[in-house]
């Protein structure tokens, strides 16, 4: 029995370590490459684990010449503002769905679910024309159509979270003489805060990663977000892998920070969208 358990632990260890290695390896390799010179990457030193002549040149080029900082700033602006307005709008909607009876509720929920399944490509053409007519191309207005991707998801996760807050709490507050506003600020908001925060993180990541709308609506590099700016490093004739690696390393840092600090919220957000609790 003991022997069996050992064997299991051993096998388990190998599988987990192998898995971790595969997940992390691309990042490590990119990190190593970012310190290599072009000569080394394209020469015989391409597969060296330790760079021969470590250099920071790739980082200097990417940061000061290729304007990756501008892209990071754009991404921050776009993702933050999307998160703020989507959370406000979705909270109102989810609260109503969770707390009130009304006709067409299941139609609304079905609609929200259906919109989250739309292929994004279906809205890009008409939105492009709309933005062209309004002279909104190459602007931060791109955050408005971001609602197609983020809003249904946010509503869905928030409804699950609001449903977990017992209605009785609000009722007893009402009996104790609390006004509508007081009930909301003193009871609902504090209890809903973790769920709202979870949703905000997921929305932020979704907005940060958005690609199609930005590449079609904001063609000027001044308005490129991180994913789009990164994809443009893939020059048609030559790809400077050193620079690509440096850029990838830099733009992975914000994501890494979010994941490290908020992993609990992310997992709870992901699973409340999909799995029964």
């Amino acid at each position: 029995m003991k022997n069996n358990k050992r064997k299991f632990l051993f096998a388990f260890g190998i599988v987990v370590i192998g898995y971790l290695f595969i997940m992390v390896f691309p990042f490590i390799w990119i990190f190593i490459t970012s310190f290599k010179t072009s000569g080394e990457i394209f020469g015989t030193g391409a597969f060296n684990v330790i760079p021969e002549n470590p250099t920071l040149k790739n980082y200097v080029t990417i940061l000061f010449e290729k304007g990756i900082l501008r892209a990071i700033l754009n991404s921050l602006i776009v993702a933050t503002s999307t998160t703020i307005y989507v959370i406000i709008v979705a909270s109102l909607c989810a609260y109503a769905i969770s707390r009130f009876h009304f006709r067409g509720k299941s139609i609304l929920l079905g609609l929200v679910l259906a919109v989250s399944m739309f292929p994004q490509m279906i809205i890009t053409g008409p939105i492009y024309n709309l933005f062209y007519d309004l002279d909104w191309l190459n602007s931060y207005f791109v955050i408005l159509p971001y609602s197609t991707i983020t809003l249904p998801m946010a509503v869905w996760i928030l409804v699950t979270h609001f449903n977990q807050i017992p209605l009785a709490l609000e009722e007893s507050a009402k009996i104790d003489g609390a006004s509508r506003v007081q009930t909301l600020t003193k009871i609902v908001f504090p209890l809903a805060a973790p769920g709202v925060f979870t949703t905000a993180i997921i929305t932020f990541i979704a907005a940060w990663n958005e690609f199609l709308l930005t590449i079609t609506l904001n063609t000027e590099s001044n308005f490129h977000t991180v994913p789009v700016a990164i994809s443009f490093l893939r020059d048609q004739f030559s790809i400077l892998w050193g620079e690509v690696a440096a850029a990838t390393t830099i733009v992975t840092i914000p994501t890494l920070i979010i994941v490290l600090f908020f992993q609990r919220q992310i997992v709870s957000g992901l699973t409340s969208g999909g799995v029964k609790e």
Binding site: F42, N209, F211, P227, I230, R234, W241, T252, I258, Q263
Partner: peptide
């Protein structure tokens, strides 16, 4: 769990470019 979240969380375009390098014919 932490490790699993990273590939999911990074932008697909970034992941794609990373793999583009890993798959590259010469390097």
């Amino acid at each position: 769990r932490t490790t699993s979240l990273i590939p999911w969380a990074i932008p697909t375009a970034v992941a794609a470019l990373m793999w583009c390098y890993l798959y590259d014919g010469t390097s």
